[in-house]
Design a protein around this nucleic acid. Sequence first.
DNA 1: TTGTAAGCGTTATCAA
DNA 2: TTGATAACGCTTACAA
Lengths: 350, 350
Amino acid sequence: MYGNQNIRKDIGNTALRNHHVTIKDIASSVGVSTATVSLALSGNSRISEETCRKIIMTAKKFGYSPSSAARSLAMNKSGNIALMIPNLDQIFQQSFFALAMNGVYDACLAKSYSLRLEVVSDSFVSSRRFIKLFQERSVDGMLYAGSTSADTYLNQLYELKYPFIFAGSYLNGSNLPFVTGDNKKGGALAVEHLLNSGRRKIAHIYGDFNITSSLDRFNGYRDALEKAGIVFDDSLTAPGGFSEKGGASAMKKLLKQKPDAVFAGNDIMAAGAIREIKRSGLSVPDDISVCGMDDIPLASAMSPALTTVKYDIYGIARRAAEKLIDIIEGRQPEQVKEFLPVELIKRDSC
Amino acid sequence: MYGNQNIRKDIGNTALRNHHVTIKDIASSVGVSTATVSLALSGNSRISEETCRKIIMTAKKFGYSPSSAARSLAMNKSGNIALMIPNLDQIFQQSFFALAMNGVYDACLAKSYSLRLEVVSDSFVSSRRFIKLFQERSVDGMLYAGSTSADTYLNQLYELKYPFIFAGSYLNGSNLPFVTGDNKKGGALAVEHLLNSGRRKIAHIYGDFNITSSLDRFNGYRDALEKAGIVFDDSLTAPGGFSEKGGASAMKKLLKQKPDAVFAGNDIMAAGAIREIKRSGLSVPDDISVCGMDDIPLASAMSPALTTVKYDIYGIARRAAEKLIDIIEGRQPEQVKEFLPVELIKRDSC
DNA sequence: TTGTAAGCGTTATCAA
DNA sequence: TTGATAACGCTTACAA
């Protein structure tokens, strides 16, 4: 009744090349129904050990794996998760996103989800692809690493109750869940450390205020200054666009104000700042202390080794993915809004 | 006959929250069969313009997107492509793979495929996941960026005729198709340039000989030396493991041989080498010329700006993905074995 | 413990 | 130009 003679002949002869072996083939070969095969392979205990063993053996022999499409269709679940990443070429080339991906990937692997990559471009937004992915049931949930303040369209996902979470960022005034690092605290930590080492005129190179983490790091910087009774001076801040070059040119501008320290919004910009300081004939940390943020692998290799605030993006992304899966699987009734701790790493640049 | 009253009522009232609208809903709302809807939405010309317009409008109104699972099942095609990336943490943190991903992503986007990420770990191999993905019909094809010489299991994919291609690497003695850069030529270009500037004692820091591109770059180096009548000296080479630190410690070792130039297997290691040379009190390029390879964005920002061989991994990955899609769609009868050109970028470190 | 059969939401093949 | 209807390959009540 089940199975297809031609198929089975192929299996017998050639190595069943491109023809796909289905549950029917296993069923007919073992002499049971497809239901039994399905149950046995999903480890259902009501199938006799004997039958179970035969089925598993045959499945292995035939190289059978259930069709993911058929499975998704029957179970109404894709088993896929999308990771959204912004389309900022410069940003994308940095280890930050690689680490984020690693974290998400590991979480997916542990929970048997597969990871799909989406780059957020204008067309991604305007074509409402972030909604379509759900409508198509291509993904069960979505993560966004590196969102900007312009991404307000995402609030639709909240209303539609589609599983979504921010990793390492969030959207101001939104109800969407997130797991991120405590950027504000990080900025404060950096400034306090610089103050403690006797510095007073502390400059700041920020990345881009459209990125929430940049803004938070900046706010931490400013608040810590004011808390120490130092008046915030706008001319001591400059944008560095997250890049080494940007950090260097921001530093060039800031040097005119003769600061005795600088807090760079990330380690890459700190590298640029250090380069520019040296170029101008000054020394780090003797003339100017430099503190970065993120603690990328390169930080400890710089000269001088960079003092920085560790931002565990791998851990953040991983936890965000785990929370997302909890949401998908109905295990997360409450809103997830987490700020994971950051930590000062003292090295030689301060 | 078609459709479900409850569903349609929901659509009328609330914003059809989590309930998925299907082709039947569109069909019954417009008053046609599902077949007609399917044909109309796929742009089949034999449907009258009138009907077509109504269907498209209704689909849009209801926010209908075909279920990807149902579609895959019916068409026997997933529309997914997997990008495999090695599990070398250090490597993964470098812009190289981010660029490769970007290239693959863009090609997928252009051809309406979606990109799935797979990290090649021991379990990935031992569980034969690279085969299972095909058996499950989860993916239509697979790309591998950064393969090692240990990845011989992949030859099975050739025998099984599953669409596969290497991007930026290949497997020695394998029939599997690839698109990569001309690494050997790159090594030669670097050495020739150093020779032309009068250097004779040229050291080499290679990444890891298990990576084919490292080996090829090394071979290019050695051949160019011999071609110039210089005897290859093993003590002038050292492994750097692709990292900045590795490059620095390799350089430390090599300095004992008092070379007058060094060709680093990638720009990251070149950065480490430069750091070590400076630390030892020597100058680049006055005492020792340094040439890297890849031309990552950081290369132009180093001091001195790094002379290097441009390896267009974005372009390579993109082209590999395009070729893969050609293979998937039956447009590629011949074996694809391409070495894309490399180019010397002269800056200040030589 | 196992089998039957009804979905799941498409596409594709015929007829009409 | 359209409509029935049979796949596609699985899971899951419900029966036996």
